[in-house]
Design a protein around this nucleic acid. Sequence first.
DNA 1: AAACCGGGGTT
DNA 2: AACCCAGGTTT
Length: 297
Amino acid sequence: MPSSPLTDRVTVWFGEHRRDLPWRAPDRTPWGVLVSEVMLQQTPVVRVLPVWEQWLRVWPVPADLAAAGTADVLRAWGRLGYPRRALRLQECARAITERHDGVVPSDEDELRALPGIGSYTAAAVVAFAYGGRSVVLDTNVRRVLARAVDGAALPSPAHTVAEVRRATALVPDAPGDAAAWAAASMELGAVVCTARAPRCGACPVADLCRWRADGYPPDLHAARRRTQGWAGTDRQVRGRVMGLLRDSVGPVPLVEVERLAVEGTDRPRLQRCVDGLVADGLVEVVGDDEPALRLPA
DNA sequence: AAACCGGGGTT
DNA sequence: AACCCAGGTTT
């Protein structure tokens, strides 16, 4: 699409209000952008910042991470959550080192073929690392378009064909403009057009927002969204075990893990979680008669 | 299409 | 205590 009031105004707004983030600095590298995108998949900016800084200091290029010890990688990942992604990021670094001569690909299909890189992250790296044209459709952009164009409070739970087609049609023709729109629309959704308490007074397109014009109708999909529990889930137990191992220098006896894991977790459940962590490559079992757990070497 | 996967912050 | 945040992989 040549341009539209929506893309133009959001992009201009971004030029004035963009947050200064290290992975947006002029001296950023494609590798730094990729690392930031993987971390930001699951974690708010303020928690990613210090980990990203250290990560890039210790492993400034993919070959550095490829050669690192897995335990060091998992400790550096810290409490960002979803530690399987740290493993995939290291696999990704190895693939870039071996298959792409250490250069982060700029081709979207090649990016998507890397471990841990899906459609969103591939599009984001194309746009933010290389200034290329891609369709960046994360939850923020989906919400902005659902509101401004469709007049819906929130996007549908799953991507729809029509939604992707619409987002594709909206991307400006020039690669630089497309990349700017991608960053701008994400930023608008992240800081102004937020899920719960949108700041419409600060929105550059409030006057053409259909959701606002229609009087903020409620979410049609509310009944089908269900909040995922946390207390007592396998995720909580896994997180607790990983925390124990991260903070321990040597192997931790399984009996000690059982004692320090989540209160009220029965033995079969803990065993199931440990087995899952082992299967994921996040934990190693050492010793037979006196089994202990540790982070993989 | 749906389930799985963390952890911190806000309300 | 309840709710919010988010994308990739696996089944």
